[in-house]
Amino acid sequence: MTKPLISVVITVYNEEENIKPLLEATYAALSEIEYEVILIEDGSTDRTVSEVKKFANDRTKLIIFNRNYGQTTALAAGIDMATGEYIATMDGDLQNDPTDIPVMLQKAIDEDWDVVAGRRANRKDGFVLRKIPSKIANWVIRNTTKVYLKDYGCTLRVYKADIAQNMGLYGELHRFIPVLAKQQGAKMTEVDVKHHPRIHGESKYGLSRTFKVMSDLILMLFFQKYFQRPIHLFGGLGLISLMLGSLISLYLLILKILGEDIWGRPIMILGFILILGGIQLITTGIIAEIIVRTYFESQHKKTYKVKSVYQGVGTAIGSLSGE
């Protein structure tokens, strides 16, 4: 098979009843395109694997995990295995519609977008348990990261391969893929896509993921602003704490000189805590700086990415990249 134009990465976990209609719909939607389908079976306990083997065609790869690792790891494995010029990701629960992929791919090609993200225009999920928490999370992520997409929860996206394969997915960061792509300078847009109600199986999402999203959001904000300069965060906070603690100590010293008893005052304990906390924060910043330098220098990583190098009248002579 020639190199595919697009690799479609689909994560599946206990989706045995969805496999046949999923593959049939995907193959039909991509029939006019050079494609490959990569299914990542994330430690299912049902007959998902046997169903895939039964209905997969010769353009389909199946990656079987020995246990459940989670959606982010599954997506990372599929993206690593992809050989297409573009990579599409989607869920395996039939709520995403494969017929949207050719439209999104054409938009990416025609308008030279690095990422085309899906936006569920008429979402078929529960209002209280799914839609409201999702809207709140989308608003918080959008306004804190300054990556202005309306629907962070839609897995259906099309990427240029070099963007997708350099995002550094791990943990549970799949919700923040647009933020990771933006950190690489990706140009992205959002289009309305179809969304269907779940017919078979059970949803893997719930309100319990809210705290995980908020925790990961803190990590994303740190990556955005301070990953290459952690001393600016920890050092800044440490200096503020140290100065406040020093001012309190100076104030108490003046009171002591004037003859007042300062022992046991809560403000004295606060001063000690602020001074010690400031020293610890500054020390943490220095250690973090050393770790960051080790990360880049030991692996010969660059702190920038050059898209292309041109010589003369617009002739590309090479491409350099780093993380």
Score class of each variant (00 low, 15 high):
residue 177 I to A: 09
residue 197 P to C: 11
residue 199 I to L: 12
residue 216 D to T: 00
residue 201 G to F: 01
residue 211 F to I: 15
residue 213 V to W: 09
residue 214 M to T: 04
residue 186 A to F: 02
residue 208 S to R: 12
residue 193 V to G: 00
residue 177 I to T: 13
residue 183 Q to P: 00
residue 191 V to P: 01
residue 199 I to N: 08
residue 193 V to F: 01
residue 207 L to E: 11
residue 213 V to I: 15
residue 191 V to N: 01
residue 196 H to C: 09
residue 184 Q to Y: 06
residue 179 V to Q: 03
residue 206 G to D: 15
residue 211 F to W: 10
residue 208 S to Y: 11
residue 212 K to C: 00
residue 187 K to D: 03
residue 179 V to H: 03
residue 182 K to I: 02
residue 194 K to M: 03
residue 206 G to C: 05
residue 184 Q to H: 12
residue 196 H to N: 10
residue 185 G to E: 13
residue 201 G to W: 01
residue 200 H to I: 04
residue 217 L to A: 08
residue 178 P to L: 08
residue 198 R to I: 13
residue 210 T to H: 07
residue 214 M to D: 02
residue 188 M to A: 05
residue 198 R to F: 02
residue 182 K to Q: 12
residue 194 K to H: 12
residue 209 R to L: 02
residue 196 H to A: 11
residue 211 F to N: 08
residue 181 A to C: 07
residue 181 A to Q: 03
residue 192 D to E: 15
residue 189 T to I: 12
residue 217 L to Q: 08
residue 192 D to Y: 09
residue 213 V to M: 04
residue 207 L to H: 08
residue 196 H to T: 03
residue 193 V to A: 02
residue 190 E to D: 10
residue 178 P to A: 06
residue 198 R to H: 00
residue 193 V to H: 00
residue 182 K to W: 13
residue 184 Q to T: 06
residue 207 L to N: 07
residue 193 V to P: 00
residue 177 I to M: 13
residue 212 K to A: 06
residue 212 K to W: 01
residue 199 I to Y: 07
residue 214 M to K: 09
residue 203 S to C: 08
residue 189 T to N: 11
residue 202 E to V: 12
residue 214 M to S: 14
residue 217 L to C: 05
residue 187 K to C: 01
residue 197 P to K: 14
residue 194 K to T: 12
residue 185 G to A: 05
residue 189 T to S: 08
residue 186 A to P: 01
residue 196 H to R: 13
residue 205 Y to K: 15
residue 188 M to F: 15
residue 209 R to C: 01
residue 184 Q to P: 00
residue 191 V to L: 13
residue 185 G to K: 02
residue 185 G to L: 05
residue 202 E to G: 10
residue 185 G to F: 10
residue 211 F to T: 11
residue 177 I to K: 04
residue 182 K to T: 13
residue 184 Q to S: 14
residue 214 M to N: 10
residue 181 A to N: 09
residue 192 D to T: 02
residue 203 S to E: 07
residue 192 D to K: 07
residue 199 I to D: 06
residue 202 E to S: 14
residue 180 L to C: 04
residue 200 H to S: 13
residue 206 G to V: 02
residue 203 S to K: 09
residue 205 Y to V: 10
residue 202 E to L: 13
residue 196 H to D: 03
residue 215 S to W: 03
residue 209 R to T: 08
residue 191 V to M: 12
residue 196 H to Q: 12
residue 179 V to K: 01
residue 213 V to P: 00
residue 205 Y to H: 14
residue 191 V to W: 01
residue 215 S to R: 11
residue 216 D to H: 06
residue 184 Q to A: 01
residue 180 L to E: 02
residue 192 D to M: 11
residue 200 H to Y: 15
residue 202 E to P: 01
residue 198 R to M: 15
residue 185 G to C: 05
residue 189 T to F: 02
residue 190 E to P: 04
residue 184 Q to W: 09
residue 181 A to D: 05
residue 202 E to C: 03
residue 178 P to V: 06
residue 207 L to R: 09
residue 190 E to S: 09
residue 188 M to S: 11
residue 198 R to S: 05
residue 196 H to K: 12
residue 201 G to L: 04
residue 191 V to R: 07
residue 200 H to C: 06
residue 192 D to G: 09
residue 217 L to I: 05
residue 209 R to K: 08
